[in-house]
Write a protein that binds this DNA or RNA. Structure first.
Lengths: 168, 168
DNA sequence: TTTTATTTTCAATATTTTTTGAAAGTTTAA
DNA sequence: TTAAACTTTCAAAAAATATTGAAAATAAAA
């Protein structure tokens, strides 16, 4: 396969993959493009290569920077800004885990506390079912929170080495 | 807080939470409703409690059954079908992991193989960046695939006991 | 059988999300 | 300063996704 075709296909695939992961299609495509580019790209480069508007590029690049998946790069002699993506896929995974934990799991944990105490008879069946469900979800979420923290802190070697030996 | 209010809030929260997880809002809300109901509900019950149409309830219940998050229940003397949700949150998590692995990770792995070989000079910088990116993603995905398999097979005790001790 | 209850389907509609592009804003160089 | 290069914003338009509801299909009861 030709490099350019392979790139295009990869960008399309990463785009639809990303949209399952809280990252919109264009954002994931820009990320993919930068992942497989050997040099930093400008907003104009991204516009041209993905055939999308300037506004769209700008918004999604900002979002990628916000997620810390993409960095601005200064190139001496150039007036434009350039952008480059984190290439280490383990780091990428850890960043995504971290961001999603912050955006989803942590708010959920806070919410569960507000809803765990309900009025009325503690032994009423309806009450009990609800309280138990919430408390189990809370336990699970706390567990997940801790585990994810460890994964976020871990480095590749730790993960492959220790965890995987255990899993085999 | 009153039980009914707490339920409503939980259903809303689970709905928006779920939509980050490849499960659409209504599907997640139906799941939430069944999670906190102490007895199986009929399609009419769900329609009334969530104020959504029959078609919508039917489609999303079918999808939940397809994910194996919800079961049909026969109640003797009743003509209608009733529905109940898996209450064990660890099982729920394992089911979701399993389904998403099947729907997302496995297709990605297949795809990566189709794109890993590119024509031309192996030492060309552009070629190298691309091939390395793909091969790193592949390594990572294989790793994730294995790890997720183990998690899917594991039971709660194994997870909390062995894995967590390790993580602490 | 026929009737009635219930479930399923799906075209039309509504809603949500994404994208565009031009105007406003900002930065740098002359 | 002013002008040119570049970035950001955001209302309007387009695209994608979810929902409705009534008709068709199916299943159970009479």
């Amino acid at each position: 396969m030709k490099l350019e075709d392979a790139k295009k296909q990869f960008i399309a695939a990463w785009g639809s993959f990303g949209s399952n992961w809280g990252i919109n299609r264009t954002m994931a495509q820009i990320h993919a493009l930068l992942l497989v580019s050997h040099e930093p790209l400008s907003a104009d480069d991204v516009m041209k290569q993905l055939a999308i508007s300037r506004g769209n590029v700008n918004m999604n690049l900002r979002e990628l920077i916000d997620w810390t998946l993409v960095d601005r790069v200064i190139i001496t002699g150039e007036r434009k800004e350039f952008f480059t993506a984190e290439k280490d896929i383990w780091k990428v995974a850890r960043i995504i885990v971290k961001e999603r934990k912050k955006r989803e799991l942590e708010p959920m944990l806070k919410f569960l506390d507000t809803v765990i105490e309900v009025d009325g008879d503690r032994n009423d069946k309806a009450n009990k079912t609800f309280t138990e469900a919430i408390s189990n979800i809370k336990k699970f979420s706390l567990q997940a929170d801790k585990t994810l923290d460890t994964i976020i802190k871990a480095d590749e070697n730790w993960f492959v080495g220790t965890l995987l030996k255990l899993f085999k």
